[in-house]
Nucleic acid binder design. Structure first.
Lengths: 231, 231
DNA sequence: TCAAAAGTGTTTAATATACACCCATGC
DNA sequence: GCATGGGTGTATATTAAACACTTTTGA
């Protein structure tokens, strides 16, 4: 696989005809769910201008690499996961959005199961941040994050994508907590169950929860394909 | 304004470090409305591989030009219009989507009033094609067009953007025809009027239609800002 | 026996859909 | 006077929202 990640960005932004060339990157808002909270995976920026600030995970796109593939590569490299839910959101192309040169970036968001992640830290620090406690991010990543988060909120209203944040087996309570964390509001339990079950997207596993300090709930799995629609 | 349009694409796709650099372009599905039909502005391709085929209007993005600005520039250059409704849709970044080299393209759609257009033909032929009679397009432009068209159809369901296809003054009948052309189905007249008027987005101009072979309808104008949300 | 969440229906409100008649104008 | 679309309201169906009690388990 083509790896653009190890190259310095300046080898991709080359002065020709008197001006800098354009580089392409992808940036991913990788969402996870833990402790009833929606989280996003961030990395400590290595740019001197943004010392100590966090940024989304991204990388330059190699000239021989499909754009979508680059986003999958970033996910694979950082979380170890393949076949994850990935959605393209928007492309940010202001001339001065990146301090080092012209970088047009395409934003994606991904929904992953935090427990399955095997984070690859490399030289920088990775951390799952609660989306309700976001501090200022490096570059224009706050704008990119907000765009991704809104896109996810719109998506989940009528597309069943919440499972991707959960283990294969889950209870309706856990699924409801996912929806509540994404939408930022509490939902009526009976109406939620009614709506989800009427969609006929869940398969009853005839198993119940274990090790819960209350009456255990039924376990379900998604009866379809949890991959992205993109392929 | 930086003009990338006159350069040959090969001056932007330069072989460095043993492989071709990546170029950025924008492609616009420019929608118009005429004779009760939704139309899209296409240009005869000048690529030898696609001789005789039509393509969307697009151009390379100069390294000193914002991505959105490039889309506005294409619109201005081809239709003479400024301040039009423009929406970014998706970025297409397969390695082999363009025969000449690596070109990542960001797709936009625009809604314009055909009558206000002053088409600039330059060396190629421009034509408004009915969206119901689309023939195969050059490059991957059929995919791009379909993506833009679906995006518009989704948008119009709950966002009042249809006006952008009409003159400043219009009747409810004309507006309904716009919706019917975009959604590809006929709508109940009473329900349509009820819904639109309840949105309180129209201002009654206390004028009536002229030169219609039937009872003239009231004229309205949109009471807000018809520009894109992007700025 | 207590705490915590599972499981389960009905009533009400809001929204969307279906549908028909008289009116004003140009020809 | 006829063809064409303008203008209007109501009844029905569908969907969304509000709401409470009994049951099961672990501690």
């Amino acid at each position: 696989m083509v790896r653009a990640g190890k190259k310095n960005i300046n080898t991709h932004i080359i002065k020709i005809d008197g001006f800098f060339k354009v580089a392409i990157s992808v940036d991913c808002a990788i969402f996870g769910f833990d402790e009833r909270e929606l989280k996003v995976l961030l990395i400590k920026s290595d740019q001197p201008q943004f010392k100590g600030k966090w940024s989304l995970l991204g990388d330059l796109v190699s000239p021989e690499e499909d754009l979508d593939k680059a986003a999958y590569r970033v996910l694979k490299e950082r979380t170890g996961l393949e076949n994850v839910y990935l959605e393209q959101v928007h492309t940010f192309g202001s001339v001065r959005r990146h301090p080092t040169g012209r970088v047009v970036t395409t934003a994606y968001y991904s929904l992953v199961n935090i427990e399955q992640c095997r984070l690859t830290t490399l030289e920088n620090e990775l951390h799952w941040h609660s989306v309700t406690e976001m501090r200022p991010l490096a570059f224009d990543h706050r704008l990119i994050f907000d765009t991704c988060f809104k896109s996810l909120q719109n998506k989940i209203v009528d597309h069943p994508v919440g499972f991707n944040l959960l283990p294969k087996k889950f209870s309706l309570r856990e699924l409801q907590h996912v929806y509540e964390a994404i939408l930022g509001k509490s939902l009526d339990r009976r109406n939620f169950r009614k709506k989800i079950l009427s969609m006929e997207i869940l398969q009853d596993l005839n198993e119940i929860e274990d090790n819960v300090p209350h009456r255990p709930g039924k376990l379900y799995k998604f009866n379809g394909n949890t991959k992205t629609e993109m392929f």
